[in-house]
Write a protein that binds this DNA or RNA. Structure first.
Length: 574
RNA sequence: GGGCCGGUAGCUCAGUUAGGGAGAGCGUCCGGCUUUUAACCGGACGGUCGGGGGUUCGAAUCCCUCCCGGCCCGCCA
């Protein structure tokens, strides 16, 4: 065949979760696995699993993700782990042995200084908080050769990889971290590298279809300079028998800047360098035997087609089953660490349960979603509804079908799915409870509102109330309409005489012993008797108890508090 | 400019597998909880399913075309 360009045939489309991708794969596989891929699946991971099974891969099935260690392990990076996880779990449930790996592409050179970094706790810090000068001197070196800016791990790369691994642990996702640098150092890449350098003409012919810079001189191997430690780009000779190359450490163009080479001329083994990305990625597929890999939409039209080509025509392997996922936005804007529009897993886990976060990623990967922190309550509500649907409590056929399949995976209990629905406080109600500190009072309020069944065990109550801390953090973080806090000390006040008199009357009423409902009604009554605006009277109450102008339904709230405290506070005594 | 992927109510999203009733939650508005103050309950309002054309008895769903958004089409990853 003499096609002038690669033919993006349907069966190589990475969009297997789109209508078009599905249409294309029908005839291509011949007969499908016994399950048949004509079956409808409410959960996308089953569609992917069908696709993988149709290739009859050997166990263990290998699922991979990977990123280059930038400065911050943010939630977007987590796509690379958790989307593969759902597929891995589905395959395990179908009886396969699955190995999920994550490659830290840590032999890549640091090309520019990151503006933000994440410390060992996952908190975002500016470049100013670390030794930026030391980082700057390491431009051009592999991430694994750069010291950890926080001085804890053996390298910059190790620091970053540890962050992602910790995130995976927090969400209960077993993933095997693989250092790309180690793959080279251990010789795992030897065969791949030899294959590439043995057939330079063939490799160039393939690559030239995708990269303009590939000419007759181009050598797709980047040795590490033995003198200055930087990744170099100029190979002058190859010795296949000795498995070495000779190189000159020349300057490297990086965007508008240049990283200076040291001019050293030296020799490097195949293990002392790396392949460029377009070869390295399919090389990883070969070395690790990858059967499935999800990737962001930026790879869909760039490296994927070339990767398919390289896999088949350079390494002689079939590429893995691909899956393109859409990027999500954060608070309506693209994720950007330099712009500070970033959120990490630990940050998010202060605001919601792991299951809710897992649910977010269980939604269809092809939809661009917005993670809106201000309206996190909506996400949690959707999760709660999804959960109720699993237990057959929602009149929605489609949602129920999705929930029945996906819920056990979302809560990580495929083998022993819950049989009873957990008690869930509505998220915004949990935020209301967050206005008070006393756990007993929180429980009483929740019971009064009917959110906790009367026969609930202590364990159940505790589990339900755990959400209060999350919602409380959310209210504080967003400074939203639930960000009120019951004042233990008397706030500064400045009331008119008639307001003060009304407060005294209300204090007497409370002291006489009435429930919340009565207090609520009495507030209207008292305001009228003293000829003051109801709103003004409520404002006074909110000032006294929350040091604010607004708050929750006050009368019923006060009815739950310690009577002496309420009376004293209404009298401005304490 | 070309390719790919998206576009359903104010917001967040189901529904497209297999053509047949346009839906949910939230928000808004109105009402209830003995009389404005965010927790609870009920109801209503709200959409040319991005536009247009075609196939069909029938289209959010299939086909064509156009519009809008994102990504890719240098290097890097």
């Amino acid at each position: 065949m003499t096609d002038d360009r690669p033919d993006p045939a349907h069966d190589d489309s990475p969009h297997i979760l789109s209508a078009q991708g599905r249409e294309g794969d029908e005839g291509a596989d011949g007969d499908a696995a016994s399950g048949g891929d004509d079956d409808f699946h409410a959960f996308w991971a089953d569609v992917v699993a069908d696709e993988i099974e149709a290739r009859h891969p050997d166990d263990p099935i290998v699922i991979k993700g990977g990123v280059s260690p930038s400065g911050v392990a943010h939630l977007g990076n987590f796509n690379e782990i958790i989307r593969g996880y759902f597929v891995a779990e589905v395959l395990r449930e179908r009886g396969h042995e699955v190995r999920q790996v994550f490659t830290s592409d840590d032999k890549d050179p640091l090309r520019k200084l990151p503006r933000k970094l994440a410390n060992a706790d996952g908190e975002i810090v500016g470049l100013g908080e670390v030794d930026a000068g030391a980082l700057g001197r390491n431009l051009g070196k592999p991430y694994t050769s750069i010291p950890d800016p926080f001085g804890e791990r053996e390298s910059y790369a190790a620091h970053f990889a540890a962050l992602l691994k910790a995130d995976a642990d927090r969400l209960g996702i077993p993933v095997e971290m693989v250092s790309n640098t180690e793959l080279y150092a251990d010789g795992a890449f030897d065969d791949v590298t030899r294959t590439v350098l043995s057939d330079l003409d063939g490799v160039r012919e393939v690559l030239a279809q995708y990269q303009d810079k590939v000419d007759d001189e181009y050598v797709p191997f980047n040795p590490v300079c033995s003198e200055c430690g930087k990744i170099t780009e100029t190979v002058t000779a190859i010795d296949l028998d000795a498995e070495t190359v000779t190189y000159v450490c020349t300057d490297m163009d990086v965007g508008d800047n240049t990283i200076e080479g040291c001019g050293h001329e030296g020799t490097a083994t195949f293990r002392e360098g790396k392949l460029p990305w377009r070869l390295e990625w399919p090389g990883q597929w070969d070395v690790l035997g990858v059967d499935f890999e999800p990737f962001g939409k930026d790879h869909a039209e760039g490296s994927w087609p070339s990767g398919v080509d390289v896999a088949r025509n350079v390494f002689g392997i079939e590429p893995p089953v691909p899956m393109v996922y859409e990027w999500f936005t954060l608070n309506g804007a693209p994720l950007s660490s330099s712009a500070g529009n970033i959120v990490t897993v630990p940050e998010l886990l202060e605001l919601l349960e792991p299951a809710v976060l897992r649910y977010f990623f269980a939604l269809h990967p092809k939809k661009a979603r917005d993670l809106d922190i201000e309206r996190l309550d909506q996400l949690v509500d959707r999760f709660d509804r999804f959960e109720r649907a699993y237990f057959g409590e929602v009149d929605d056929e489609d949602l129920t079908a999705f929930a029945e399949r996906a819920y056990p995976f979302v809560v990580g209990r495929v083998d022993d799915p819950p049989t009873e629905p957990p008690v869930r406080l509505p998220y915004t109600f949990a935020a209301v409870l967050g206005m008070v500190d006393d756990p007993a009072l929180r429980e009483r309020l929740a019971r009064d509102e009917g959110h906790i069944p009367s026969d609930a065990s202590e364990t159940v109550v505790e589990a339900a109330l755990a959400r209060v801390e999350k919602a409380r953090n959310w209210a504080e973080r967003t400074a939203n309409e639930y960000d009120y806090r019951l004042q233990t000390d008397l706030p500064e006040t400045d009331f008119d005489d008639d307001v003060a008199a009304a407060l005294d009357d209300l204090a007497d009423f409370v002291a006489a012993g009435h429930d919340g409902e009565a207090i609520q009604a009495e507030m209207y009554e008292t305001a009228r008797e003293h000829d003051i605006e109801v709103s003004e009277f409520f404002s006074a109450g909110y000032r006294l108890f929350f040091d604010d102008t607004q708050g929750p339904r006050l009368g019923e709230f006060l009815g739950e508090l310690e009577r002496d405290y309420v009376v004293a506070r209404l009298r401005r005594e304490a």
